[in-house]
């Protein structure tokens, strides 16, 4: 950290505060709008101070839902999104740490071709392979299910590569000491490699949870039932109402609610997250 004296330091702080204001203002508007009456917002007379309908609006959003387009309370959507995001984050970490372990520590035929295959999938995100993936999920009767939502997104080259790079920095002597200490491949993985990967897993979890939470295209395709829709889809549906007035307080409340879990995850895991990204100590 560079120490700055007096004036320059104030300038830096002012610039930072301006930045924060620009980023935070829309969020503030969303929160304010979610406490006002819809009629006021629709008329363009929204005040910049909180209105008096906070509990009413949020109660309706979470437990009742909009009167028109979504037909489900946001509580259900949040649950769906949460289950999907958790499945994706946990699933990706589990799959990729295991495959990285195999690639780094085991000599088996076609090890490098398999590694390259995994690597190549980086070039094939869901959006590119959307038709075949949809076909497979449909054939497996996984449409409108949590499995269908999460499974196709679990395979991850990025996380595999990240764990591979990390495993390659773990000194060979640790493996050798484990072998002499009578730890087989499973024990070495469980007792040594997993605890050492803790911060990496935390950092990945934060990134992957947010990635999963923000999924839009895939859930839009494979969920048709109202009770399976995720919150991102819900917000979109709430805004486009064909013949009724958009219920802006509810939309804004949903947007605020959609922000909360990622914020919560980041705040709770911040320490581990940062350590996972910068840690060099082995």
């Amino acid at each position: 950290m560079v120490e700055e004296e007096g004036f320059r330091r104030y300038v830096a702080h002012i610039i930072l505060w301006i930045g924060i204001a620009i980023v935070a203002f829309p969020v503030y508007i969303a929160i304010i709008a979610s406490t006002q009456e819809n009629a006021l917002i629709a008329n363009g007379q929204m005040s910049l101070l909180p209105g008096g309908h906070f509990f009413e609006v949020y109660y309706q959003t979470i437990f009742v839902g909009t009167t028109g387009s979504t037909r489900e309370p946001v509580g259900t959507m949040m649950l769906n999104s949460l289950v999907m995001a958790l499945m994706i984050a946990v699933g990706k970490i589990a799959i990729s740490i295991i495959s990285a372990y195999a690639i780094v520590y085991f000599r088996f035929p076609f090890r490098m071709p398999i590694f390259w295959l995994i690597f190549i999938t980086l070039m094939l995100p869901v959006e590119v392979r959307i038709y075949p993936t949809y076909k497979i999920v449909a054939d497996l009767h996984m449409l409108d299910s949590y499995a269908g939502l999460a499974l196709p997104l679990i395979a991850s080259a990025t996380a595999t590569l990240l764990f591979r790079q990390f495993f390659m920095t773990v000194p060979d002597e640790l493996l050798e000491a484990s072998r002499i200490d009578g730890a087989g491949p499973f024990r070495f993985f469980w007792d040594t490699l997993l605890p050492l990967s803790r911060t990496n897993m935390a950092a990945l979890f934060v990134i992957l949870f947010i990635l999963g939470w923000n999924q839009y295209l895939w859930p839009l395709l494979i969920t048709t039932r109202d009770d399976m829709q995720t919150i991102q889809i819900g917000i979109r549906k709430m805004i486009t109402t064909s013949d009724a007035l958009t219920e802006w307080p509810l939309v804004m409340a949903t947007a605020v609610l959609a922000m909360l879990p990622p914020v919560f995850v980041v705040v709770v895991m911040q320490k581990l997250f940062v350590r996972g990204l910068v840690e060099t100590e082995k």
Partner: peptide, 27 residues
Amino acid sequence: PADRDIAMVFQNYALYPHMSVYNNMAY
């Protein structure tokens, strides 16, 4: 190696970084 009834001291010690001294010895 585990069945040869040997113990090895490594150049860089190869201690398990996440385990306490006690657990390093007990593992």
